[in-house]
Nucleic acid binder design. Structure first.
Length: 192
DNA sequence: TGTATGATCGCCT
DNA sequence: GGCGATCATACAG
């Protein structure tokens, strides 16, 4: 059958802007290292700021694959960025994972980041990929199987989600598709 | 506290 | 050949 699109109680076959706020509070681990998601951004096919806006290419191919998989790309020739693919296969939407609250494997993260301050380990898309050792090798992999592990957020501890404009883009600047946990000290930039 | 800038490379025009 | 879904450092105030 088709790949599972429901992971950690989240249906990844929904639009990215619907999936994104639900991801706040979900724990993501790579080889057992990671933490709670506290900041994400949604990108859709009909979105001038999305890599998929102009259709499938070799780089963005994973986002046109099945939902619940990873899309990993290199930013500015330096930093890797991790996305979760949304909607049905062939659509081209995803959610950029921008920041985590580090919980598991802190020693490994500190070594990889060469940084002791816990707030500097995963407070940005490039930082968290370095902390979790995510590279192109993980592009297209299912989030339902190792090395990935998704853990649903605690139903009792519902996260309060706030939103605002996305960061570091030059088109569709005012679309409020950045989502974060209210009051979290681990986001890349505070929400206003 | 904030603005500016360099690093560095692959994708897309 | 231009330009990033970024980050760390170097300044200015």
């Amino acid at each position: 059958m088709t790949a599972p699109s429901i992971l950690a109680n989240i249906d990844f076959s929904q639009p990215a802007a619907s999936v994104a706020p639900q991801l706040i509070g979900v724990t993501v681990l790579v080889h057992g290292v990671g933490g709670r998601i506290v900041e994400v951004e949604a990108y859709d096919r009909d979105d001038p700021a999305s890599h998929t806006y102009n259709g499938p290419t070799e780089r963005n191919g994973a986002m046109f694959g099945p939902p619940g998989h990873a899309y990993v790309y290199l930013s500015h020739g330096i930093h890797w960025c991790l996305n979760f693919v949304c909607m049905e296969a062939g659509h081209g939407a995803g959610v950029l994972i921008r920041a985590l609250e580090p919980l598991h494997g802190l020693d490994a993260m500190r070594l990889r980041r060469r940084q002791q301050d816990i707030r500097m380990l995963c407070s940005g898309p490039g930082k968290l990929c370095q902390a979790l050792a995510v590279t192109r090798a993980y592009n297209g992999l299912s989030l339902a199987a190792p090395p990935f592990q998704l853990i649903a957020r605690d139903a009792e501890a519902e996260a309060e989600v706030v939103s605002g404009p996305r960061i570091g883009i030059s088109r569709a600047v005012e679309v409020p598709w950045r989502f974060g946990e209210a009051g979290s000290k681990f986001v890349s930039k505070p929400f206003r």
